[in-house]
Amino acid sequence: MGETITVTVNGTAHTAEVEPRTLLVHFLREQLNLTGTHIGCDTSTCGCCTVHVDGDAVLSCSTLAIQCDGREVRTVEGLQSEDGTLHPIQQAFHENHGLQCGYCTPGMMMAAVGIIEQQPNATDDEIRAALEGNLCRCTGYQNIVASIRAAADQMARS
């Protein structure tokens, strides 16, 4: 039943055998051991599993791994530099207390990077609107928005 696919994840090409029904999130977590991408709701509601496929923020629970054959996937593990320097969004979440329990954080950060890339000058209201697909059960939204604001400003300066 297995099909062979090659997916570039965080810059590294991985060739693996998957069942066609394997979801991208299960492929990342269980076959590549990249457990930073979380599974929250299983109904495309919470945004925890957000990753980038060819540069677009998408839900890895609503995408089959086999659909990503030949594509580039970026997960939360791919944010920091090889020398360990945090990505501006990670640094901003750290400095602004952008997380409480941390469960939604990988999805929040991947959605945030998508927002900053699409709308580098987004206002706070636009950031809030663009986070509509990411739920934080700790309701820490104030600091999440502050973190994204800080990261966007930092990225605009550098």
């Binding site: 495309s44 677009d56 998508g114 509509e132």
Partner: peptide, 9 residues
Amino acid sequence: IGSPQVRNR
């Protein structure tokens, strides 16, 4: 429709 992630797909 949905969220940015949904509108991207």
